[in-house]
């Protein structure tokens, strides 16, 4: 990211903004896809974030923080879409009814991507955001907290709670008959 490009874009140079957007769009698109799990909505989120970035760019105090700021706009756009979507969906919560602890090979439980995806889809918007920012964009937790505008402790809590919920979902899946699992809404 060039500071000069950001400065030019801040002054209304759309060509400079186009260069910044071109450099960022792969990262943004992948991040949005990972959070939303939906191609169309990922496009919407990226468009919303970049449109917001263009409009509000003059307010960016530190050009060196452009990428972090863009991440924040995108994360907020994704969270907004997820929250909106959740209002219209029936969330099904699985309850573990097994009375006895199950000893299992965790590596085997999470071996396939479908299972991970099913677990991830059960997370709330904020948990998804923390996990993607930390584990895909490789942002350290203080940076994740700053990106989402939450205290560091909150970011940590969301990360570990999100991973726990994924793990619990995978455990529950592993104990269900395949036919039952396939018939369940996610």
């Amino acid at each position: 990211m060039s500071r000069d490009l950001v400065e030019r874009a801040r002054r209304g140079d759309h060509d400079a903004f186009a260069e910044l957007a071109a450099a960022a769009i792969s990262r943004l698109d992948a991040t949005a896809w990972l959070m939303l799990r939906d191609h169309e909505r990922a496009m919407d989120a990226v468009q919303n974030a970049l449109l917001r970035a263009w409009r509000d760019l003059p307010a960016l105090r530190d050009p060196d923080r452009f990428d972090a700021w863009l991440n924040r706009l995108l994360a907020n756009a994704c969270i907004d879409l997820l929250r909106r979507d959740r209002r219209h969906r029936l969330d099904v919560v699985l309850t573990d009814t097994s009375p006895t602890p199950i000893v299992h090979d965790e590596t085997a439980v999470i071996a396939d991507r479908d299972e991970l995806e099913r677990g991830f889809r059960r997370l709330g918007p904020e948990e998804r955001a923390v996990i993607v920012l930390h584990h895909y964009l490789d942002l350290p937790l203080p940076e994740v907290a700053a990106t989402l505008g939450v205290p560091l402790g909150t970011a940590k809590t969301r990360l570990y709670r999100g991973l726990d919920r994924m793990r619990a979902a995978l455990d529950a899946d592993a104990r269900l008959e395949p036919g039952v699992r396939e018939g369940r809404p996610s």
């Binding site: 896809w33 990226v46 449109l51």
Partner: peptide, 26 residues
């Protein structure tokens, strides 16, 4: 996450820039 994202090929940059070009900065 990395494996799931690596094959993404965003094809909507032009559409995005078309929208931003229509918008005025604040």
């Amino acid at each position: 996450l990395h494996a799931d994202a690596e094959h993404r090929v965003p094809d909507h940059l032009d559409a995005v820039l078309g929208r931003t070009s229509m918008a005025r900065q604040r």
